[in-house]
Amino acid sequence: MVMKHDPASKRSTGPSAKFSEPVADYLEYLQRERGRSENTLRAYDVDLRNLGQFLNEHAGDPALKQISVQMLRDWLAYLHESAVSRTTLARRISAVKNFFAWALKNHLVENDPALRLAAPKKERRLPHILQPSQIDRLLSEHAGPTEENEAARQKGDGIDQDPKARAIQCRDRVIAELLYASGLRISELVALDLSDIDFERRTLRVLGKGNKERMVPFGKPAERVIIEWIRSYRRVVAAEQAGDALLVGVRGSRLNVRQAREVIASALRSLGDTSASGPHALRHTVATHLLDGGADLRAVQEFLGHASLATTQLYTHVSVDRLRQSYRQAHPRA
Rank of each mutant, 00 (worst) to 15 (best):
K4C: 13
P7F: 11
P7K: 14
P7I: 14
S9G: 11
A17T: 09
F19D: 06
P22E: 07
R34D: 10
G35F: 09
E38M: 13
R42E: 13
D47S: 04
D47H: 08
L48R: 11
F54Q: 09
H58C: 07
H58G: 02
A59Y: 07
D61Q: 09
K65S: 12
K65C: 09
V69K: 15
L76W: 06
Y78E: 08
A95L: 05
W102Y: 14
A103W: 00
A103E: 02
L104P: 01
H107V: 13
L108G: 09
V109S: 03
E110K: 12
L117D: 11
L117Y: 12
R125F: 11
R125S: 13
L126T: 08
P132N: 08
S133P: 04
Q134N: 04
D136Q: 14
L138G: 05
S140G: 15
R153V: 04
Q154A: 13
K155M: 13
G156W: 02
D162M: 10
D162E: 12
A167C: 09
Q169T: 10
V174E: 05
Y180V: 08
A181Y: 09
S182F: 08
S182H: 09
G183T: 01
D196P: 00
E200N: 13
R202A: 14
R205N: 12
V206F: 00
V206N: 06
L207Q: 05
G210F: 12
G210D: 07
K212W: 01
M215P: 11
E223L: 14
Y233C: 09
V237T: 06
A238S: 10
A239P: 00
D244M: 02
V248M: 05
V248Q: 01
V250E: 13
S253Y: 11
A276E: 00
A281C: 09
L282S: 02
R283S: 01
G293D: 03
L297C: 08
R298T: 08
F303R: 03
F303D: 01
G305W: 08
H306I: 01
H306W: 09
A310D: 05
L314A: 08
Y315H: 07
L323H: 12
Y327F: 06
H331K: 07
P332W: 06
P332V: 01
